[in-house]
Design a protein around this nucleic acid. Structure first.
Length: 287
DNA sequence: AAGAGGCCCTGATAGC
DNA sequence: TGCTATCAGGGCCTCT
């Protein structure tokens, strides 16, 4: 589910609710996530005090005061739920992302922080949690990742150099975290629409003007989505919580057969499959 | 060594 | 009602 904006919304919520707290208990119900949770995970996290919550790309980074780290990746279906302890033993649901109630199944990890309980839920188990002892390990993990769209490193020179001797369509490049990190399937389509670029266009054929548009709109689209609380799809039922609303502003994603939102374009949104993932685009204004 | 494709997994939905 | 097939916001691994 989560691309950069959604993860940033989770980060903000965690920062607000668990910064400064001490981990009092860790319970792993299922270690078999995308990456198996190490045996000593619980032991290593216990008694750690949270200095701050960072994010890189689609990763949440819990930073402890002793400069160790806990990394959380939400995969496709991961969600984090915060429960607040009301009386001595009972936790009640106060904050959550995407789902108004704590799911009954797939609550794989529970981390208690004094009066708050953090629950990692993930039906498909494509997400994972990692513990890092020091900053070196963290840097190693992100070594092969490209810059975020917000980074100054994501500039025209970088892109031109990166595309040298590579032959792929632009949609695949935007999904490639080694090139640029944080975009996923929704925002890749949205950025290409705003940039008026056809997703199957060979990246090496793009003009400098088009590349500048990609730089501009990748920042813009992500920022706008963050401001709107991210995108919530497939989890509509209730709206009591921190449900995002950017899905209402999708110009192409999930809009097959509908009209292009550009006035006087007259195009129709099409859906094609690129590398096994849906891509949406306007058949007239994206070239 | 770049790039295509398979695969990890569960759940929701569509079609019969 | 119940079966089967398809699809889903990610990304790693293997093969060519």
């Amino acid at each position: 589910m989560p691309e950069l904006p959604e993860v940033e919304i989770v980060r903000k919520s965690l920062s607000k609710n668990i910064k400064g707290k001490v981990i009092t208990k860790v319970e792993v119900n299922n270690r078999n996530l995308r990456v198996k949770i190490e045996k000593k995970f619980e032991e290593k996290l216990k008694k750690k005090k949270i200095k701050k919550i960072d994010r890189f790309s689609k990763y949440i980074i819990i930073v402890f005061f002793d400069n160790s780290f806990c990394l959380i990746h939400l995969g496709m279906s991961g969600t984090i739920h915060l429960l607040k302890k009301k009386n001595k033993n009972k936790f009640t649901n106060t904050s959550f992302y995407h789902s108004p109630h704590l799911p009954k199944k797939h609550n794989h990890v529970e981390i208690e922080l004094q009066n708050i309980s953090l629950i990692y839920n993930d039906p498909r188990r494509f997400g994972y949690l990692l513990y890092f002892d020091n900053k070196k390990q963290l840097q190693k993990k992100f070594k092969s990742y490209g810059p975020e769209p917000f980074s100054k490193k994501f500039n025209l020179e970088y892109i031109l150099k990166y595309f040298q001797n590579k032959h792929k369509n632009i949609k695949n490049f935007l999904l490639d975290q080694k090139f640029v990190s944080g975009l996923g399937n929704i925002y890749a389509s949205e950025v290409l629409f705003e940039s008026k670029i056809y997703p199957l266009k060979s990246a090496s054929l793009l003009t400098n003007d088009q590349l500048k548009k990609i730089i501009k709109y990748s920042k813009k689209v992500l920022k706008r989505s963050i401001a709107k609380g991210g995108s919530s799809i497939r989890d509509f039922k209730n709206t009591t919580g921190d449900q995002g609303s950017f899905q209402k502003e999708f110009k192409v994603y999930n809009r097959e057969h509908l009209k292009c939102t550009r006035r006087s374009c007259g195009g129709i949104i099409k859906k094609i499959i690129i590398s096994n993932r849906s891509s949406f685009f306007c058949n007239i204004c994206q070239k």
